[in-house]
Structure formats: C-alpha cells, structure tokens
C-alpha cells in the first residue's frame, strides 16, 4: 500500500500523459496485489483485468486521439488552495476513522448481520463453493443485472458521442474535398 502511495504521488507530479496512464495501470495492479493479501481474490482478478487492463487501453486510445503532453499551467495559488482543501478533508476523514472498528476485528458490526447466513447456507442453497460468486449471481442477481444495464448504457453513450464526432469530421473532409475540386475546376 505504501508502494501505491509512491505511485500516486508520481501520477500527481508527472506531466507526460503517456507515463501517467502507464502508472495508473501499475497503480491498479499493485491494488490487485493488495486485494489478494486481504483475502479478496475475486476482486483482485477483476481489478487486474478491468482496472489495469481495459482502463489502460482506453486511456491510451484517448491519448492517441488527443494529445500526449499536459501543459504547464495553474498558478502557485491554485495548487496551494487545492492542497489546503485536501489537507482539511484528509484531517476530517482521519478523525472519522477513530470510530471505526479496528483492522481485522471479528466482532465488528458488518460481520454479523446477513453475512453468517451467507457463509453457512450458500453452499447448500446455491451449490457453489465460492461465496462471492453465489451472492453476486444468486442472492443479488438483480443487482448484477442492473450492472449489465449500466455497462450497456455506458457503451451506448460512448458510441453516441464518438460515432457522431467521427461522422461530422468525415462530412467536413468531404466538404473540403468538394471545395478543393471546385477551386481546381475554376
């Protein structure tokens, strides 16, 4: 996790966007390693595939369509103000953690509501040894269906935004082409 901190700071400082997108992939990958040691193996391989894989590809695609360099900008006053806001928010959040259950605490409230039932019964009821899978696909199946709708909506949105832009550019090129031939003709 300290490694993740180092990578995060590097992302904040570096202005070459190609390096930044690579670093964000590395950040996700280290995050996936952290999930493994925290016993969340399903989350880890989703993060490694989706966070470190697909996100990085999307980011590189965007850079190919736009620009690689971040401009130097933003006065010193702006970054100081931002730092102040961040420091205050962080302090409030740290204050909030004092009421949290301690790390690894067995008697924390979240481990004692429906979770024991899932752990005891899901093996018989769903017939799957992996509790995460049986909760995701069976007990919370509608939630997962909603997630699929979210992805579908996002994909439709991306296609609507980018598809139209490309068509417009082709139109402009066609217009330019036509005016070009007209000039030659005249």
């Amino acid at each position: 996790m300290l490694m993740m901190g180092a990578v995060g700071l590097a992302i904040a400082r570096i202005r070459d966007l190609f390096a930044v997108s690579m670093l964000s992939g590395i950040f996700s990958l280290i995050g996936a390693a952290a999930y493994v040691v925290l016993d969340a193996v399903d989350v880890a391989f989703t993060e490694a595939a989706v966070g470190a894989g697909i996100s990085t590809v999307l980011m590189l695609g965007t850079l190919a369509l736009t620009t690689r360099k971040e401009k130097m900008g933003g006065g010193k006053s702006k970054s100081t103000a931002a730092f102040l806001v961040v420091a205050v928010t962080g302090a409030v959040l740290v204050y909030g953690t004092f009421d949290m259950p301690r790390y690894g605490d067995k008697i924390a409230a979240i481990h004692h509501h429906v979770v024991p039932r899932y752990i005891e019964k899901s093996g018989e009821e769903v017939g799957m040894p992996n509790i995460v899978t049986s909760v995701l696909a069976s007990y919370r199946g509608y939630d997962t269906l909603g997630e699929v709708f979210v992805i579908f909506t996002a994909a439709t949105g991306v296609l609507a935004i980018l598809g139209r832009a490309r068509r417009r550019r082709e139109d402009e090129e066609a217009d330019e082409g036509r005016s070009g031939t007209k000039e030659i003709a005249s």
Partner: peptide, 15 residues
Amino acid sequence: ILMAKVSGGTAPILA
C-alpha cells in the same frame, strides 16, 4: 476491502 478482512480468516471460498 480493508473493512471486510477478519483476522485469521481466509478468502470466502468454502472448504
């Protein structure tokens, strides 16, 4: 994920 960790626990796969 940090909140989900139980000390001494393993990944939630029945065994």
